[in-house]
Amino acid sequence: MFSHVMVGSNDIERSAGFYGAVLGVLGAGEPIRDVSPSGHARLFYRHDGSTFCVSEPIDGAPATSGNGGTIGFKCTSPEQVHAFHDAAVAAGGTSIEGPPGLRSNDKGALYLAYARDPDGNKLCALFRPRRAPEAA
């Protein structure tokens, strides 16, 4: 459904360090660096058919985070969720909404961790355990 997700940054080099560490946990390599026709720097991280982009705002206004928005990254294990979270905090992000862990509701369980990047964008690392087959 999505071709890419893009967030704004007020410091593209700080974002390169942050997202290089965090997305490296998921297997993304170095970003493709680009300069838009307007002269604004952009980073494109490509991995497993998805693209995550970071850009200086093209309109010249400061980058701001969206209130109520979250960008979720699929993880392959609870350990990868922890590694994503730890990399985010070590690279200048902020841990939010409690420590990484299992959260359950009537629809099932998810292993989650939340952090904000240095520009305030809310990120979620998510592992969805497989449900046990139901008895016939």
Rank of each mutant, 00 (worst) to 15 (best):
D106V: 10
P37V: 09
L110P: 00
S36T: 15
G93W: 01
E56T: 14
G29V: 00
G108W: 06
T70P: 03
G92D: 02
E97L: 10
D48M: 11
V25D: 03
D106Q: 14
S50N: 14
P62M: 06
G27H: 05
G24H: 01
G66L: 06
D59W: 00
N105Q: 13
I32M: 06
S77L: 06
H47T: 09
D48H: 08
T94I: 13
H82M: 08
A113Q: 02
V54Y: 00
A113P: 01
T51G: 02
D34T: 07
H85N: 07
A91F: 05
R33Y: 01
A83H: 07
H85P: 07
I32G: 00
A87M: 01
Y111W: 08
K74I: 10
P31M: 09
T94K: 10
V89W: 05
A88P: 03
G98H: 10
S38E: 12
A113I: 01
D86A: 11
G93F: 00
C75F: 06
P99T: 14
A109K: 14
S36V: 06
G66D: 14
A109T: 11
P100N: 08
F73L: 02
R116A: 13
G92M: 04
K74L: 11
L26V: 11
R103S: 08
A115P: 00
P31N: 02
S38F: 05
F84V: 11
E97M: 10
G39I: 09
E97Q: 14
N67W: 09
